[in-house]
Design a protein around this nucleic acid. Structure first.
Lengths: 241, 241
DNA sequence: CGCCCTGGGTTGTCTATACAGGCTTAGGGC
DNA sequence: GCCCTAAGCCTGTATAGACAACCCAGGGCG
């Protein structure tokens, strides 16, 4: 959707800020350049700087206070509503054997949609993997994953039969935040075959986007056979029935 | 945060669109006025109309296609974290009408399985309700719930058309902790009919067990149409890929 | 009949300018 | 020393004008 000048200037401003946060030269709580400063140093109009900062504030990366300034948000470790584990650990915890099959592993260029979800330029290189996880020989999860090589370099060189993507990413890209979306759906044939499902069998899809050091580190679609998989989440929040 | 002109004009444009969607004069897939049309009819600048439409697109309310136009998105409802909220609030937050139908409401004796999940003796009395929640007339959730009358007395006497189970329980039984289990499944006929689903359509089931003052207060099975419901959860925990 | 090209409408973006209202601070008056 | 005010920065919003890229339809041409 965003492809006009190949790379929009407000995106560049966002990257300017995000890069500084990732590099550590901007830390949580510190003040980021004001719109007027960005106008001067990056030679953009104030409206462009405003859009960049406003969107980063909506994403929770920055906090803006009218009349005062813009600051890097504190990335609090808050009660986790949805606790998601490594599927390999889950399987082993049940005393079963975990096996992993690599279906595809390559570098791809970010499509328009992916670039947007990653907050990267279209065409930027992404590491791609398509794996199937087996529990005692039966497929339990198809994991389709894109990884930002800037956030987690060396992903494609990992030996996935020894280190799962989860383990690799946890080690290489310290986790900051995660978004999850869960849906029930009838899978397309490609996924259905990998999960060895009958036609008409539903599947549980967990879409996960993880952030590391202010950047999107990885986007994963996790497909599970609906008949054999449950997602558990425990929480002690404030208001629910 | 937004308190400048008390009510910003781009917000008015957003409401202009949202009201028309809520009223039914703009339906899913239909085209909404272009930026230039809004500029003329609402006497705002194109940038203001652009911001309104862009934000509605980010929220998933609209879909924009460069060079073609802006259209009302197919409603893919999108729920909140597992800090789960009241489905009625969710629906109203989208500017839609929430309605609730009571299918069953009675006192039952705990089966062996239920007694186990409640940590009660088999045969102990439980309050039971089966409700359907509607969003603008379309069923969005079937809520099948058992309540421990010791933890939340008076459940059966509640007027559910005024106070949803969520609201009642939050008030009567202060929440301590919640467990969730999520799965995808093909619903049994009873649920399928209440959700008005075609045969073969998957459904997203959220099973919830809530604790109050050290007791299990309530066990709820929440069924949603897989094609129209998403569950979203954001978290910043320590370990996940 | 089919192909290409062009024109008009639409979104996507950028700029320069302007005003309102919140917050901080320096400076003056007491 | 204390209080109050005004200046100056900050964000939030609005506007008019401009250009680029995209899509579709319709007309002209082979």
């Amino acid at each position: 959707m965003t492809l006009q000048p190949a790379t929009a200037r407000y995106q560049k401003v966002k990257h300017f800020i995000l890069d500084r946060i990732a590099a550590g030269s901007l830390r949580a709580g510190e003040r980021v350049p004001s719109e007027n400063e960005l106008t001067r140093t990056l030679t953009v109009s104030r409206m462009t700087a405003n859009r960049a900062l406003r969107e980063l504030a909506e994403d929770g990366v920055l906090v803006r206070v009218a009349g005062v300034g813009t600051f890097v948000a504190e990335q609090r470790v808050h009660a986790h509503p949805l606790e998601v584990r490594n599927i390999a650990d889950e399987i082993r915890a049940r005393g079963h054997e975990h096996r992993l099959k690599v279906v595809a592993l390559e570098s791809v260029a970010a499509s328009r949609e992916l670039a947007e979800r990653f907050v990267l330029r279209p065409g930027a290189p992404l590491d791609y993997s398509l794996l199937t996880h087996f529990e005692d020989g039966a497929p339990l999860q198809v994991e389709e994953r894109y990884v930002n090589p800037l956030a987690a370099p060396g992903y494609l060189r990992n030996d996935f039969t020894r280190t799962t993507p989860h383990e690799f990413l946890v080690r290489v890209a310290p986790l900051q935040r995660a978004e999850h979306t869960v849906r029930a759906l009838l899978p397309e044939r490609r996924i259905r075959r990998l999960l060895r499902l009958e036609a008409g069998e539903p599947c549980l899809l967990i879409m996960r986007r993880t952030f590391s050091q202010g950047r999107v580190a990885s986007i994963a679609d996790l497909y599970h056979p609906g008949s054999r998989y449950e997602l558990a989440a425990n929480c002690q929040p404030r208001s629910l029935p």
